[in-house]
Design a protein around this nucleic acid. Sequence first.
DNA 1: CGCCGTCTAGAGCGACCGTTCTAGGCTGGG
DNA 2: CCCAGCCTAGAACGGTCGCTCTAGACGGCG
Lengths: 196, 196
Amino acid sequence: MASTRDRIITATNELFRRQGYHATSLKEISVASGATIGSIYHFFPGGKEALGVAVVETTGAIYRELFETLVAEFDDPATSYRQFCLGAAAVLVESEWLDPCPIGGVARETANTSEPLRAASAAAFDSWVEAANAHLQGVGVAPDRARSLATMFVATIEGTFVLSRTRRSTEPLEAAGEHLAALVTAALDEPAPVDR
Amino acid sequence: MASTRDRIITATNELFRRQGYHATSLKEISVASGATIGSIYHFFPGGKEALGVAVVETTGAIYRELFETLVAEFDDPATSYRQFCLGAAAVLVESEWLDPCPIGGVARETANTSEPLRAASAAAFDSWVEAANAHLQGVGVAPDRARSLATMFVATIEGTFVLSRTRRSTEPLEAAGEHLAALVTAALDEPAPVDR
DNA sequence: CGCCGTCTAGAGCGACCGTTCTAGGCTGGG
DNA sequence: CCCAGCCTAGAACGGTCGCTCTAGACGGCG
């Protein structure tokens, strides 16, 4: 059985994915994790906000690793990004439309009301952009273009999560996979900037 | 002075943009709008949920019109989408990082917990996709490709809002503007599908 | 065995939540 | 002038929130 701390984080992660930050109470987390309120405050003396930061940091690191392993499975870079979207679509359907990413929700709810949570979310997003940037540069995309495309990738993924989940359709993720693949292919074909 | 009902909706819209659905209380809405709790329940007998639906529907319609007028200002379609992103970036900075779109937050918070709010959010997103779809087909993009690109556009916009706001940077919106413009240009150049 | 730091247990705090209720002002038509 | 209607006012409800506190269970080490 996982440690109490890990169970608290895992349970909180799932509750955030289902209903977000503010709609999730410590009592719910207590019940779902099998830990008492006292245990939660023992491991996270900063209360709900500190627990939220820990969840964001943990999930951010896991997803970064997931991206890196998943993207390394394909020889063609464009295929990697398309498959990433299709994989996310499968997760979305299997989980019955749980948000694949608890961080997006936390970020949206707290970007103007909690600096610790905003900063933790920004750091997670930054690490993903950096991972995609490194991958794109590794396959030959010019540096400035790679960073811009990496940012676009992370933003589009987050946006398609919202759209697909709200509309109960994998169509946005499939469309994003195709268009992101096209952008990657274009960036590989013509490494020079295409500014107007 | 605007009608009480309108003031309630406007105030709620702004509070949702700042802090989301669950973090906004009826008391806050009452103070911000200058209407009493009794008035809120008079105009929205369904309570907070019904008020949320009204806000989503109102904002959804306004933004659809905004898109249509804004996109008609430019002759080159690619420029329209780039300018849309740049305009959103300006709004974001001017409002000191208020979420430009209350619907995305509401959708993310309630997609699995309130069917009326989920349905209203989905309808708003659908109407935007339809507006972009109509615009793209109007400038000569093939139907299936136009719909896919329109979906990608709405998803990317929502995603860049989250990323830009969380990171306190307009960079994601600027990157999205460039890449969306490139996708539109490509769709105009080669109307045939580019599937692998 | 006895001790101590780590972790768990659960009652209880004040504050605030969404909601309901009754009563009173205000306005336009008879 | 009166009165019926729509709208406002604000107290009050039960419930739940995040959080604090004290007490005890557990296990490794001297």
